[in-house]
Design a protein around this nucleic acid. Structure first.
Lengths: 223, 223
DNA sequence: TATATACTGTTAAAAATATAACGTTAATTG
DNA sequence: CAATTAACGTTATATTTTTAACAGTATATA
């Protein structure tokens, strides 16, 4: 009996697939029918070999001398990423970041639909922000359960992130997109994706420091 | 003559250093004096060996049997990340994301100071948002030059991101923190850090898909 | 004061990821 | 219609990153 090993798609590849998807949609809108890894590589400043490797994850196969059929490729990437069907999500914490996410239009294009925002702050409850209703926190668990919501987005301060997490888990959420700078306590089978602005800035800041240092050593030899 | 090779700190390490920094500040606030990799590892759900490796980047050395002096460690990490002195930055695009960033309080703690926001939309110009002045776009290049600003933050739609980039470069910006979903054309010595919500969501979404699939194969064996 | 424990730093091995090399196929052009 | 070019997939190699193994040092404890 043959053993088929389905290995997880590497995280870096997933991140790049999202990038490819975005660019491919643009090219599609520009009327292109096919696309080659070389072209994508140029557009995105990546190595074409890397793109080929990545596209292995979509069991799609391009045609030598031609490339890939654009629409097929878009669909295959969406299948891998789970973007082919719209997924509902709830968001908790309608501060400035939460508000920004509620209004982020690109979520449509990647199959994410935030059905409602939640807040403890009673002033915001009942309002509509970017067309989304804001509900009180005590309705969170119940709504998740009733609507079978699988994804929770956390944009509350770190201090209350765990409380919110627990409410989400009680409702049956299977994945949490966490924007709070804290490590959440969750069962092992729940998917967590942490987003940290500080981490991103750390890279920028360090690279800038290094670049400045190199420049001082090399170029600027003014007495 | 001895050759000292200073190699760049790996990007994953930089991202984790930011995490360590955050946690260490918390522990400091709680009154701790020293800290061991083991404790950090527990708190952050990482392997202690990894933390040790990462901390090599701070040329700091801990004491066997004790650990690291907390305040020293915080300082060393800040030195590596370039967070020991406050760096000024400008932000262009005061939409909902830009607004959120203008009000992000944690930037203080990591040495980032946004001196002003910029907008084309005249309605917003002149206002103060989260205490920051909003200036018209045509003052951007000049202000960067005058204040010797090194970092530009881009939170405009993808279509105008390149234009804004050019204005920033003209002023002498050395690093760009880009939140627009597009690849910016820049000289090779300018540091670019792209932030992509879609990429982050791609990971979450794919992992959720896989988890669901595994669960259906394993656990739920209902007829 | 010996012994156990909690740490570190370093070196080595393993795993993951990215890059290169190569043989092949389709379209284009002279 | 041959030759060139643009593209692919696959396999192999190199690099990066993570994990493990281990020897050594400080503190605490019996």
């Amino acid at each position: 009996m043959e053993k088929i090993i389905i290995r997880a798609v590497p995280q870096p590849t997933l991140r790049r697939l999202a990038q490819y998807h975005h660019r491919l949609k643009q090219l599609e809108a520009m009327g292109r029918i096919t696309v080659s890894c070389t072209i994508l590589a140029n557009d995105l400043k990546l190595a074409s070999t890397q793109i080929r490797k990545d596209l292995e994850a979509t069991s799609l196969t391009g045609q030598a001398g031609v490339g890939f059929v654009l629409s097929d490729l878009v669909h295959s990437i969406e299948t891998v990423l789970g973007w082919d069907n719209t997924t509902d999500a709830v968001l908790v914490g309608v501060g400035s970041l939460g508000t920004a996410l509620l209004g982020y239009e690109r979520f449509n294009q990647i199959g994410l639909n935030i059905v409602a925002g939640f807040e403890i702050d009673n002033i915001k409850v009942g309002q509509k922000i970017h067309g989304k209703v804001i509900l009180p926190l005590d309705k969170l668990t119940n709504l998740i359960e009733r609507m079978k919501i699988k994804i929770g987005i956390i944009t509350v301060p770190a201090e209350v992130a765990q409380i919110v997490t627990n409410l989400m888990l009680a409702g049956g959420v299977r994945a949490i997109w966490n924007f709070a700078p804290t490590i959440l306590e969750t069962p092992p089978d729940v998917v967590i994706e942490n987003v940290s602005l500080a981490s991103s800035y750390a890279v920028l800041s360090n690279r800038l420091l290094e670049a400045t240092r190199n420049q001082q050593l090399t170029g600027e030899s003014n007495s």
